[in-house]
Simulated assay, not measured.
Amino acid sequence: MGEPKDEREKFQEELIGLDPHDPETKAFAEHLDRMKRERPGFTVEGYLDGVRDFADSANRTTGHRRMLAVVVVGLILLGVILTIWFALGDIITIIF
């Protein structure tokens, strides 16, 4: 009753009439799996799953959406670098 279904049985109703060996059908099944996946909320694992989903989505997209994802990641990295720079400056000021 509570046993997990394998990949073919999980989305059988949504994939009726589609070739199970077709790459587009497999991609659609993966999309359905991502949509219905339950991840732990408010935990480090949940946040990291969200980052992984963002990275996978950014790698699949092209054009202006990919550039927007690169800009978002660049701004995040810039914020981290500035935070570390100012923290190191404060630490060096306190020590010397």
Rank of each mutant, 00 (worst) to 15 (best):
D53H: 04
P20F: 03
K10E: 11
S57T: 14
P4I: 05
G50M: 03
L32F: 01
K36F: 06
T83K: 02
R39V: 07
L18G: 01
R37D: 04
Y47V: 11
F28A: 08
V72D: 09
D56N: 13
F96W: 02
D33E: 08
I84S: 13
R37H: 06
F96L: 07
L18E: 07
L32T: 02
A29M: 02
L88H: 03
G50N: 06
A58Y: 07
A69D: 14
L18Y: 10
L82F: 12
K10T: 05
Y47A: 12
V51K: 11
T43I: 04
E9Y: 03
R37Q: 04
G46V: 09
V71Q: 15
A29F: 05
I16C: 04
D22E: 06
D53S: 10
L15D: 04
S57D: 15
D33M: 02
L77N: 06
Y47H: 09
L48N: 08
P23Q: 05
G63N: 11
L78N: 08
M67C: 09
R66W: 12
A58H: 00
A27H: 06
D49W: 09
H21W: 00
V73T: 12
F96P: 07
T43C: 05
L82S: 14
T25N: 04
L77K: 09
E24Y: 11
K26T: 03
G17M: 02
L75C: 13
E3Y: 10
E38C: 05
P40Y: 04
G2D: 10
L15P: 08
L88W: 09
T43Y: 03
P40R: 11
V72C: 04
L68I: 06
E9A: 10
L68W: 04
L77G: 06
E7A: 07
I92H: 10
Y47Q: 12
P20C: 00
M35Q: 14
M35Y: 09
A29G: 00
K26H: 05
I84L: 15
L48H: 06
A27D: 08
H64L: 15
V51L: 12
I76K: 07
I95W: 10
L32I: 02
D22S: 05
E9P: 00
E3H: 07
R39C: 05
T61H: 06
P40D: 12
E24S: 08
L78T: 12
P4T: 05
R60P: 00
H64S: 15
G89D: 10
E9C: 02
T93A: 15
E7H: 06
R8I: 05
T43M: 00
G41S: 10
N59W: 08
G79K: 01
H64W: 13
R66V: 10
T61Y: 10
